[in-house]
Design a binder for these strands. Structure first.
Lengths: 140, 140
DNA sequence: TTAGAGTAGATGCAAACGCATTAGTCACGA
DNA sequence: TCGTGACTAATGCGTTTGCATCTACTCTAA
């Protein structure tokens, strides 16, 4: 077992433990965490996102994301309109309701995250961000 | 956006990017990554694990894990027998075939993990393990 | 201009998932 | 000893997922 493998296993464990913890909290309303994640990713950009680009930020297969967006459009959280520049693609953005809902859920969730990561010192938080940033550098 | 939230988002991103990367590799045979994870968790203990205990190490709901174990038993990778000490529970362990399969897949996967985390210095690997270890300290 | 390769997103379908609930067992106090 | 509450794993059921495929559009080069 190399250092790298130990580190990866530890990262997965932390992800798993914290995800379960967050998921168990009663703050998600009528959304699943995965659905919230989609709203959150969309909230980070004010210009509409392409489906394929959104897919790069979400741990879902392309068909699964396509259908989830379907449902979010159906429920009035997401707006999907054809991309004028590329008629194969679509432009995704939050509706006002979607933006509002994201904020309503995001606010208590952000507090949970802060609380959970409070066991780390400011230096450790900084290191964690830098190190995990390096790990996903192949993207973006 | 606090430091804690930035760090958590960065961790999730790294998890997502690397998971997709690993999943895309052609090393999983007839197993899904989640199924492999179950075999791997079982491989770490030589004494049989309780279902509930295994569940603590895997990011799956209790019913989903129960049925996944069903399928792994069916396919000859896992042995499930009643716990003599507690007739509500079961004892889960790898069959020889399960152990063999775990090793066959684990070997190339471990190399992938090492390769992916090679962008980090030895110090960073150490820090990552320590920091993520603290994050999951509420468990175990 | 047009054939062919490449890309974006949607759809058919079987498998897997989570929630709610159940059945069976344990443990403790009346 | 018996009854109540807690605990463990399994099951019913509707929803969501991934794989494979499909349609539609774009891009390049002959």
């Amino acid at each position: 077992m190399t250092r790298a493998n130990e580190a990866w296993e530890s990262l997965m464990k932390a992800y798993s433990v914290l995800m379960k913890q967050f998921n168990a909290e009663d703050i998600w309303g009528d959304l699943t965490m995965r659905e919230y994640d989609v709203l959150y990713q969309l909230s980070k950009y004010d210009s509409p996102l392409r489906m394929s680009e959104l897919n790069r930020h979400v741990l879902l297969s392309q068909p699964a994301l396509s259908r989830m967006v379907d449902r979010l459009v159906e429920r009035g959280y997401v707006d999907r309109c054809p991309d004028p520049g590329d008629r194969r693609g679509v432009r995704l953005s939050l509706t006002p309701a979607g933006r509002e809902t994201q904020k309503q859920i995001g606010s208590p969730h952000a507090r949970s995250v802060t609380r959970a990561l409070n066991v780390l010192t400011p230096e450790e938080l900084e290191q964690l961000a830098v190190i995990t940033g390096k790990l996903s550098q192949s993207e973006e």
